[in-house]
Write a protein that binds this DNA or RNA. Sequence first.
DNA 1: TCTCAAGTAGACAGACCTGTACACCTTGAG
DNA 2: CTCAAGGTGTACAGGTCTGTCTACTTGAGA
Lengths: 189, 189
Amino acid sequence: MPSPSKREQIVDEALRLFYRHGFNATGVDKIIASAGVSKKTLYSHFRSKDELILATLRKRDEMFRNKMMRETERRAAAPRDRLLALFDFLGDWFNEDGFSGCMFINAAAEFSAQDNPSHMVAAEHKRLVVDYIREQAQLAGARDPAALAHQINLLMEGAIVYAHVIGDRQAATRARDMAEVFVRQQLDG
Amino acid sequence: MPSPSKREQIVDEALRLFYRHGFNATGVDKIIASAGVSKKTLYSHFRSKDELILATLRKRDEMFRNKMMRETERRAAAPRDRLLALFDFLGDWFNEDGFSGCMFINAAAEFSAQDNPSHMVAAEHKRLVVDYIREQAQLAGARDPAALAHQINLLMEGAIVYAHVIGDRQAATRARDMAEVFVRQQLDG
DNA sequence: TCTCAAGTAGACAGACCTGTACACCTTGAG
DNA sequence: CTCAAGGTGTACAGGTCTGTCTACTTGAGA
């Protein structure tokens, strides 16, 4: 049975390279060289490059949402404050070294067809993020948690695009200020 | 001297293919086959594929902003209404056949480095869109036209991501409703 | 110590990539 | 009619891509 740790090495390195350089621009040869494994090992874990891409997207989804939840909950205890703390998390992310936008937006860009498996994983990721926001909105006592979650998520997506395409460093705080309006709308008065 | 109409044929076809399938995934051979020109003709107009990509992005920028302005101004006469009509334009665009997101977000995704020439054209496009919104905000009498323009544009970017990645058909109206809040904030009371 | 599974290194097939070169055709101006 | 410029079609060089294959090495358990 192939070793799980080798598999992890491959996925971790593929994640880094796909995120930095894109999916089509990153060859299998570069992945195995960086991961320090042979081509045969890679193909014993994954039937094809496409399957490896799917595996990296699933891992990224898990890692990203875990970090988002952890960081958001570390910053604020009350659900209402957490809705805004999401944007502080974004701000830190934007200023990380090697920030290259949202990997799922990038995947949707390269795999444009909605029925492409990678595109579908990206869409699922976005839905799961909205789910988390909706939970917090519900805990905070929002009148329409689903609507508020979509509003907040839409602002987050906008901020990500701003930060990556234009390189706007204020994107996160700008979006946070906007989000505050909708949070107040649903939780005050 | 190479014929300008041939050049236009090449750029038009490259635009269609790059938008639908992505930049790296579209080979020069496919472009010349679709455009009905020989390889030599393409390379007499463009020194390299990269240069062709830049030319298509510049044309897309021109076409997109012209259409955006035309459609927005057709829908509403008053600058204030135009700020919201932008989202009606987006809604129509999202429902067009072959909608594949924003070509400049896609370009930034494939050419992730901020100093990549294609990425820089994408950033410039976004800045020019903001400029137009700011003009309208100013005409409408906004207290802080630049801030309002950024708010509206951030909502537009969010809507585009929603529409493309998740395939949300309501993205444009959702964003429009959100924009109304900020327009009111600056133009009423 | 023997065995066998998992791994490495690397050649290879076959396709596709960008960009160049060569031979030929077409067309309009002098 | 001549001829030069722009164009076509296609072969080609040199490289990269994915995915398969062979031959060899390593290490742990019976």
